[in-house]
Design a protein around this nucleic acid. Structure first.
Length: 669
RNA sequence: UCCCCGAUAGCUCAAUGGUAGAGCGACCGGCUGUUAACCGGUAGGUUCUAGGUUCGAGUCCUAGUCGGGGAGCCA
């Protein structure tokens, strides 16, 4: 089935699609000045100084006609009837023309294959990772959708990023708005001048002017993009809105509906705005007022993160937390997409666990017993001493806790579905109060069958690079904010990680490097010794000073790692002691971001480890069964979702990258 | 859990043991296609809690609560 060309772009779409298509008739090479995200995309990657941006990164005034790629016949490409698909150009990215394909229904792969045939000659190769947007999006090579983890086909030399050549499809955009009577602020920014719009959102700022007989400048945000849109409300002359006095009194946080039309802005600071002219049907309807503006907790001023944590229900209305929320969503979707496109299955591992064998720290108890008067085991403690609590009378008939990891459970599904992952909340009752720890956090744990530690490390690298690309591609507006206000140099740091292959380094070798550094005068607070775990200062030294790039540390001493990690053959890495196939991925500025291992698949070795660590062997009966019935080598890792958020946004405190943080002594909201 | 720091107006912070202050925000007015606006004015306080020392405590002492940074543990 081919995607054909046509001169009637509006023939198969909703009104919204017509609007976009007509908008796309502008020279597609030009960054749309009404789209801050596109302007940013250009700004991130290009050294082209001809795109003046103002402080917020918007194009201030379009310069002369852009000279970049000649018009591409996007708007003439049309799907066969009944397929409901649209294609449009979105401007440039990394100096290349960027295309997006939208497919509401229908066979995605076939469509993109057909397109690839049309554009197959248009490879670009100036990306440092060897890929390009065009390659990733449209090339026939990847249009077959085949995933290649662990196979010879795409798994290049160790450390070479191959994920760029894997399927990267289609941006999905909300179709929903088409059936609603209003549009999002994000869509309004993308609408051509002259489009009548109805917006619904919250007032960010309200400025007044006496010009033109009275104007109000309402900055309205609905959270769908970083920037609020400026609504100019007329208060004098024939265009005055009836409730202008009410509009004048609107304060930060009020919710409103605005009818108006998209116009080119007369002021500086934004290229388009929404003009509300009463004589042209414009109106402002107040939905909800802020009842006491004086005490509105997130008034229009700077607030500390500490303060905003105490206002977690309102903090998402601020620039920072809105951006965090959008990036968090994007990261979540990107993660699922990464695995889905590589034939991984998402497994919902349990939150409540009645097995006492997860062994990763303090657990939260789950119980329905009467805490004041729990049942006791009869006679166990003699007449006067009460026996231990009788959990056989508890809800599950035994002790139950909240999970500290989905790994053991997900290994079972791995032993049948080959490639699986779990993503869910995880609970640790440790009394640790730091900027990197939560009592409730989210963790991603993939598990791959027939894989060894190298496959695992390669997957981790592909995964991290995919996540970086996703947030840069999809949330340029928010990422620009993080770069400017949260961490200067963030984009360079991420670009660096994207660019360089991860270095694989045996633990034993890392110890040698650290010892040499000490001999050369490097001072550490903690000693370095084969057999002890590396301190974060050691990890930072390796990744930030010595190698200045991401490092995958591999093959740790057996005694400092978990029982399920595969015991290496003697002599691996010429280590002075026994090692296990564990790995930690270290990245500059954040440190350890991933921990993983190849799992012990040999029953007798596993049993020996369980025995050695004095673990309750009985509890592991089902885990041991995996080794008794068709055991396979397998490996996996865990990525803390909030730590990934910190890595990607530059936010310094884990409590600020999760909507409602749970920490010791704190579970408000 | 350990070490260090902190808590004063809606927010951020001042205030030798002696009358509770500023900036921002809010409100009122002026000016302005405004946009960290600007100019003038007004209101706003049980100084975290409970004890103690003192003629007198925001300030000093004790205990507690909460918050922040670091360590450990980890993701």
């Amino acid at each position: 089935m081919m995607v054909t060309t046509s001169n009637s772009p509006a023939g198969h779409g909703s009104p919204a699609s017509s609007r976009r298509n007509s908008g796309a008739k502008a020279p597609p090479g030009s960054s749309d000045p009404t789209r801050p995200d596109i302007a940013l995309a250009t700004a991130i990657a290009s050294d082209d100084e001809s795109n003046p941006t103002n402080r917020r990164g918007r194009r201030v005034a379009p310069t002369s006609a852009p000279s970049s790629p000649p018009p591409h016949p996007t708007s003439r490409i049309e799907a066969p009837s009944g397929m409901n698909r649209r294609i449009w150009s979105k401007g440039t990215m990394y100096g290349r023309q960027r295309w997006r394909v939208r497919l509401s229904t229908g066979p995605v792969v076939k469509a993109s294959l057909a397109i690839a045939e049309r554009t197959g000659g248009e490879r670009s190769s100036n990306r440092s990772d060897g890929g390009s947007v065009m390659d990733r999006t449209l090339s026939p090579w990847r249009a077959d959708g085949r995933s290649t983890i662990g196979s010879g086909e795409s798994a290049g030399p160790a450390g070479v990023d191959t994920s760029a050549r894997r399927p990267f499809l289609v941006e999905s955009r909300p179709v929903l708005e088409c059936s609603m009577s209003w549009i999002t602020v994000k869509s309004a920014f993308a609408s051509p001048v002259g489009t009548p719009v109805t917006l619904k959102g919250w007032v960010r700022t309200n400025r007044e002017s006496k010009a033109d007989g009275g104007l109000c400048f309402l900055a309205v945000s609905d959270g769908t993009c970083f920037d609020p849109i400026q609504c100019v409300i007329k208060g004098g002359g024939p265009g005055a809105v009836g409730n202008f006095d009410q509009v004048q009194r609107l304060t930060t946080g009020c919710s409103v509906e605005v009818d108006g039309s998209v116009v080119a802005s007369q002021g500086k600071g934004q290229s388009v705005e929404v003009l509300v002219d009463g004589s042209a049907g414009g109106a402002v309807r107040v939905v909800g007022l802020v009842e006491n503006p004086d005490t509105y907790p997130v008034s229009n001023k700077r607030h500390t993160f500490e303060y905003l944590r105490e206002q977690a229900h309102l903090r998402v209305r601020t620039n920072t937390f809105g951006a965090v929320a959008r990036v968090r969503h994007t990261l979540s979707m990107a993660m699922h997409r990464f695995f889905h496109e590589r034939d991984f299955f998402y497994v919902h591992t349990p939150i409540v666990t009645a097995s006492d064998c997860e062994g990763a720290g303090q657990m939260f108890r789950v119980s329905t017993l009467d805490m004041l008067n729990p049942p006791r085991v009869a006679g166990a403690g003699g007449k006067d001493t009460p026996g231990p609590i009788d959990y056989s009378q508890d809800f599950f008939g035994k002790e139950a806790h909240l999970t500290v990891s989905g790994q053991l459970n997900v290994e079972t599904y791995c032993s049948a579905l080959s490639r699986v992952y779990t993503f869910g909340p995880t609970f640790r009752a440790e009394n640790s109060n730091t900027s990197r720890h939560l009592a409730e956090f989210w963790m991603i744990e993939p598990e791959i069958a027939f894989a060894d530690l190298t496959d695992d490390a390669r997957l981790a690298e592909d995964f991290i690079k995919h996540l970086i690309r996703a947030v840069l591609d999809e949330r340029p507006d928010d990422m620009k904010f993080f770069e400017e206000r949260i961490e200067k140099g963030l984009l360079a740091r991420l670009g660096d990680v994207l660019e360089k292959p991860f270095l694989h380094l045996p633990y034993t070798e890392a110890i040698r490097i650290l010892e040499k550094a000490i001999a050369a005068g490097q001072v550490f607070e903690y000693p370095v010794k084969w057999g002890s775990d590396l301190q974060s200062e050691h990890e930072r030294f390796l990744t930030e000073q010595h190698f200045k790039q991401p490092v995958v540390l591999m093959n740790y001493p057996k005694q400092i790692k978990a029982f399920y990690m595969r015991v290496n053959d003697p002599g691996t890495d010429s280590a002075p002691g026994e090692t296990v196939a564990a790995m930690d991925v270290l990245v500059p500025a954040v440190g350890e971001i991933i921990g993983g291992s190849q799992r012990e698949e040999r029953l007798e070795v596993l049993d020996a480890r369980i025995e050695e660590m004095k673990l309750p062997a009985k509890e592991y009966w089902w885990y041991r069964d995996l080794r008794r019935y068709g055991t396979v080598p397998h490996a996996g890792f865990g990525l803390g979702f909030e730590r990934a958020m910190m890595f990607l946004t530059g936010m310094q405190n884990v409590r600020d990258v999760i909507p409602f943080p749970r920490t010791p002594k704190s579970a408000d909201f």
